[in-house]
Every structure is written in C-alpha cells, then in structure tokens.
Amino acid sequence: MIRLRLALAAVTVIFASPAQAYWEFGHQTIARIAMANVRPATRRAVGRILADETLLGTPECPARTPADAAVWPDCVKPLKDAEGKPRFGYAYGWHFQDVEICQPFDLQPACRDGNCVSAQITRDVALLRDRATPRAGRVQALAFLLHFVGDLHQPLHAGEKADKGGNDLAAAYGSYSPPRFNLHSIWDGPLAERAITTGPSLVRRYPAAERARVAAGTVTDWSHESWQVAHDVVYASALGGDACGASPAKVTLDDATIASLVPAARLQVLRGGLRLAKLLDAALS
C-alpha cells in the first residue's frame, strides 16, 4: 500500500507538470523502433553524430544515445541563457501544427514560415544530408528529427479544435483526474504507456514488406493521417462520437473507451518508429 501511494504521488507530480509531447517513454520507444529497423550504415552514422553530443552545450540534457536524444528537445525547453531568456525559445512552435479538425485539412496556416513540426522534420533531414552542416548542427538536427517524428504521430500535435491540441480540454482517465489533467495529457502519457506495454514489444525488426507499407508516403501524407486520427479517434471518442460537437468543460474517458483507443495509440507509435527509420536512412545512409 505504501509503495502504491508513493507511485501515485509520483505520477501526480508528472501529470501536473507542463505537458511534454509523448513524454519520455513514447519518444524513447519510437527512437528504439527506428534504430531496430535502420540500415547498419545508418546506425553507425547515428552513433558517430551522437558522439559529439557535448557540442550541444546542454549537460543537463544528455543526448548520448538515440533514446536520450529523442527527449532532448523537450528537456531543453526550460533552459535559460545568461539573461534569463529561454535558450531554445525559437523552437517552441516546432513541436506541433495545430490544424483545425473541423475544417478542410490545410497545413499552410499552421506552417507559416516553417514554424511547424512537419516543416522542421523536412529541414532536419536536409541538414543531415548536407555534408557542409557543422558538427554541432548535425547533432542538433538529429536530436530534433528523432523527437519531431514522434511529435507528429501524437495526433493532438497534428489536429486540434481551438483548444491548443486538447490542452484546454480538462479530462479524466477513468477514475484518475489530477489537477490540470487534460485530453492532451492522456494521449501523451497514460494512454501512450498503456498502448506501448500492451501486447508484444513494438521494439523489434519488422519484415521489409511491413516497413515499406507502414512508412509509405511523405511527411505531408503523415501529417494528414495524424490529423485524421485526431478527428476520427481522439475527439470522436472524447465527445461521444461527434468530433465537431460542442466540447464540455471536462470529458471522462471510461475504461471501455480507453481499451478501445489502445490499438490506435499503439499504431501511431509503430508508424512513428518505422517512418523515422525511413527518414534516417534517407538522411544518413
């Protein structure tokens, strides 16, 4: 009982903290799936680049391994410079693209001036392919790429309902509803963790045909797909089937609804991992 209380207290602290995309477990899992499915040459190239992780100048946020690097862009968010300003404030808008789910899909407004997750994924691939990119820039581009592909596959980073990707919609996960918990928190944390730990491990080498099928398409295609998942799955399940209906002050996902969402959440993690592997091969092999 004491252990249970301590565990719940720790979870409450995590859930009450500012939302981070997919939190650590989701991002690390996507990175591990990718590394299990890249070409050997790509795996070696990733290791060489991350050997320079000290060039990032962020000892508080290590990026020694792909799993570490995949959470580095969230870890550095609170870091300040000598003047007390956010060191990486310029990247805050790169983690998402809030495309309205109840209007026709249109990336242009959300990606103005390249300030969205899909545009940054494309940019990071280009930086890694360019042999003229400085070593420090390559480490940063790799860390951002490892992270942003995960962000894109968290549906509430790809679609929203004028609620900051579900951050403004209070929510309960079954009977669990700590302060400031919201729909975004559910998809970032407990639902992602349940999906990843349900069934056989997602971290394994997949057959070539499955890798090709899941990773088919472009970053824009994947953006559209995640946006559609936000509409068809995330908001529809939270709002009683009508994704574009009025949002109440608070929604509750009951146990049956949570169980029904696990396959979709699990598929998004798999898609993220295999698509990240495809991009890493394209950038580094």
Rank of each mutant, 00 (worst) to 15 (best):
P178A: 12
Y92K: 15
S201N: 13
V262R: 07
A230F: 02
S185K: 12
A67I: 07
T218N: 08
A216T: 05
K161Y: 15
F181W: 09
C244K: 11
H231Y: 08
A243P: 09
K80M: 10
G84F: 04
K77R: 14
A132R: 11
L55P: 02
W94R: 04
A238N: 10
V203P: 02
A192I: 01
K161T: 08
V117Q: 05
A126P: 00
P200M: 10
A63C: 13
A21W: 01
V125Y: 05
I258R: 09
D98C: 00
K250P: 08
P109V: 03
L239A: 02
A31C: 04
Y235I: 14
D168F: 11
V139Y: 08
V269I: 14
K250W: 08
A256F: 04
T198F: 13
L107V: 08
L280R: 04
P190S: 06
V139L: 05
A172E: 07
R129T: 00
A208R: 13
L156R: 06
S260C: 12
W94N: 10
N37E: 07
L107W: 02
C244R: 07
Q268R: 12
R135K: 11
F88Q: 06
D168A: 13
R112V: 13
V99K: 02
G137H: 13
A264H: 15
V251P: 03
L50G: 06
E210G: 00
R266D: 03
A67Q: 15
D68Q: 14
A36R: 12
H95E: 02
Y206G: 03
K161F: 12
T197V: 05
V76H: 00
L183S: 11
L191T: 02
Q103F: 05
E60Q: 15
R135T: 12
Q108E: 12
Q103N: 05
V38H: 00
F148K: 15
G165P: 11
R275E: 09
G174V: 04
V219Q: 03
W222G: 03
S285Q: 15
S226Q: 15
Q97C: 04
G199T: 10
I186D: 05
R180C: 05
V251N: 04
C244W: 10
R39N: 08
G150F: 13
A132Q: 13
A10N: 04
T42N: 09
Q140F: 02
G26N: 12
W222S: 10
W94V: 03
Y92A: 15
H157R: 15
F181L: 08
C61W: 04
K85G: 09
T12N: 06
Q154Y: 01
N115I: 06
T122H: 00
D168L: 14
L267V: 00
A10C: 05
I101H: 02
I258S: 07
V76S: 03
L276N: 02
P18W: 11
A141S: 09
C244T: 15
Q103E: 10
T29F: 03
G273C: 13
A7S: 07
P104R: 02
P263E: 09
S237C: 07
G47D: 14
G89K: 13
P207G: 02
R180S: 10
V71T: 15
P178L: 10
A51T: 03
F88M: 10
A10R: 10
G114T: 03
L107A: 09
R5M: 12
L128M: 01
A34N: 06
D52E: 10
P179C: 11
D81H: 11
V251L: 07
A126F: 03
G240H: 07
A10T: 00
K250N: 09
T29L: 04
T220L: 15
A126E: 11
